[in-house]
Amino acid sequence: MSFKNFPMVSRVMFGRGSFNQLDEIITPKRQGREAPFIYYVDDVFKGNPWLTSRISLSYKDKIIYVPTKEEPKTSQIDQLVEDIILEFSERPSGIIGIGGGIVLDIAKAVSIMLTNEGEAKDYQGWDLVKNPAIYHVGIPTISGTGAEVSRTTILTGPDRKLGINSDYTPFDQVILDPELTKDVPKDQWFYTGMDCYVHCIESLNGSYLNSFSQSYGEKAFEICKEVFLGDNLSEEEAQDKLMMASWHGGMSIAYSQVGVAHAMSYGLGYLLGIKHGIGNCIVFDHLEEFYPDGVKLFKEMKAKHNIVLPKGICANLEEEELDIMINVALSLEPLWENAIGKNWKDIITPQKLKELYLKM
């Protein structure tokens, strides 16, 4: 039997206010005056001195604000890489992503594509990256995606929505500062937190489950229940805990895999541009057949926080559009094998997926 030898984030700092130590952490990594640090920052922070004034720029360092209305595309990564190559005479000293899953995935993808030839779409899949990425740092400003700890970066390409899954994807350094999540809007907080919750349910109920994944998944699951169904946490405690749930949820799928909700959510994201967190919620709401206990608890969380999900998003789609979503979902074979088992193709037919999508 062959065991997976996965890399992890080699350095992580946790604590309220730890963002203030960013400069101290990255300064030793500077390669010279001509090799800048590039900061990709969620554009929600544009004009917000509370965060941006704490980024100290030297020499040719640059902040690039990233719009997050849409999930990252392979073409967007290629453009960002080209911009860097054209603007700077030397390869950057490092890429720093400050934001949610979208921004963190962009930072990971750009750091990989600066050292690997071709286009980002060439690397969508498992273990296709040949050369180590440049130094890259992840600083989440919302909790739940697990992007800060995962070995994937989710990209929508010309043909499919699929991550660059590789040993070179994980960050070299992560700073977990729960204070950075204080202004997240309520619905966004819920959708992204549920990404973590769904990670746990899919990992803990999957055929790939092992004690390594289980230990992280169970911890994240317990914290999610405490944060989303408990009543006695202060706002600060809830922020601290959800950030740790995100980390553990991400770790739980590192050595296992996600399942039905993620596979189908990728279809929604590819065709309709629906963001990952809310996409998972829309799908998961209809998956009692696969995750009865998990969905029951999810509905309790939804009710407690007065979350109303969009309905009828697939009702008016043409057959060809449904087929596109179904094909994107079916292409994620490891997810289905984890969720259903080796014989998943006998159970998960195009017709079955069509029926599920039409409920949404």
Rank of each mutant, 00 (worst) to 15 (best):
D159E: 15
L51V: 02
Y123D: 00
W189F: 14
F19S: 09
L57Y: 01
G47C: 01
F37Y: 03
I340C: 11
N338W: 14
P67V: 01
Q214E: 04
L57W: 01
T145F: 11
S10I: 15
N116Q: 07
R151K: 09
L335S: 15
G97V: 13
M251P: 10
G230Y: 09
V12W: 04
E321F: 13
E117C: 03
T145L: 13
Q124N: 03
G15S: 05
A315P: 05
M301E: 11
Y208Q: 15
G125C: 01
F37K: 03
I55L: 03
K121H: 05
Y135V: 02
F37W: 04
V103S: 07
E87K: 04
K275Y: 09
V227Q: 05
N5A: 07
G267V: 13
S256M: 11
D159Q: 13
N116C: 15
N131A: 06
F221M: 08
E119Y: 02
L176S: 05
K73P: 05
N165G: 09
S111E: 05
Q257F: 13
Y216L: 05
K182R: 14
L297T: 15
P92H: 02
I274V: 15
Y357S: 11
E90H: 04
E222Y: 05
M1T: 06
F19W: 08
E355D: 14
I102W: 05
G32D: 00
K4E: 04
S111V: 07
T141P: 03
D240G: 05
G217W: 01
T152D: 12
K241N: 06
I348P: 09
A315I: 09
P28E: 04
S2A: 05
E226S: 10
S89P: 05
T181C: 15
L86W: 08
T74C: 05
V137F: 11
I64T: 03
K161I: 14
N20Q: 09
G294F: 10
K62S: 09
D323R: 11
C224K: 06
P36L: 03
L317K: 10
M264T: 15
S111D: 03
D231Y: 09
L104Q: 14
W50M: 00
A147R: 07
G312A: 06
I98N: 04
D167V: 11
V81E: 00
V328G: 12
G146A: 08
P67C: 00
E236S: 04
K161A: 13
D195W: 10
K186E: 12
Q21H: 09
V110D: 02
K130W: 01
P158Y: 10
E319P: 00
E34N: 00
S203Q: 03
Q239N: 10
L57D: 02
F19T: 11
E236I: 07
L322K: 10
G138E: 02
F88W: 01
E288P: 08
I63T: 08
E148T: 04
